[in-house]
Amino acid sequence: MIYGSNHIDLVNDAFWFITGISALLLFVITFLMIYFVFKYNRKKGKKAVNIEGNTKLEILWTVIPVILVMAMFWYGWIGYRDLKNPPKDAMIVKVTAQMWKWTFEYDNGVKADSLYVPVNRAIQVNLHSLDVNHSFFIPAFRFKRDVLPNKNNSIWFLPANVGKFDIACAEYCGLSHSAMYSKVIVLPQQEFDNWLKTELVKKNASVTQSSAVNRK
């Protein structure tokens, strides 16, 4: 997958950290199970030994997992903290979700069907829903945020590379939920400025028919 935004590293790190530990533990558990099943198989005629338990061992395998999961929690938390607090100079885009389409509105009133953003600039999206719950999901950027009626959520990201990435709706919203795709189009700053300017001109040209503006 193409390197998309600033969040990617933190999310990937946390993911692989937890997955790594989990895979290791899973391997140990599975290996021991299989090994014991063969080694102490009844067919080998060994007598079973009644071992009631071992408190030291119990404490050991309580404490170690506690430490491990606390580390996992920490990794997850720092990544989230980063996602939660947008920088003050972030460019703001208003996102409106409805069954089953996305609309993106810029400060100057320009509206679009796709989310055009300049590269390397913090973008804050303010999320609004006109009807039911939706969720603003950009897989390539590793985040999503629910879009709920009556609740103004927001999220920010910093697109690190030029390119087109999918926006999906991740909260079930009825019949065409799976078709509620859009694109985030990351442009170089210059191109983005040009785009915004053209759109503004188009918008002013046909103020009454703002829906026509969305075609590019």
Partner: peptide
């Protein structure tokens, strides 16, 4: 556990 981690859960 993977989902319990806040940042990963966002994804």
């Amino acid at each position: 556990l993977i989902q319990g981690a806040l940042s990963v859960n966002m994804h």
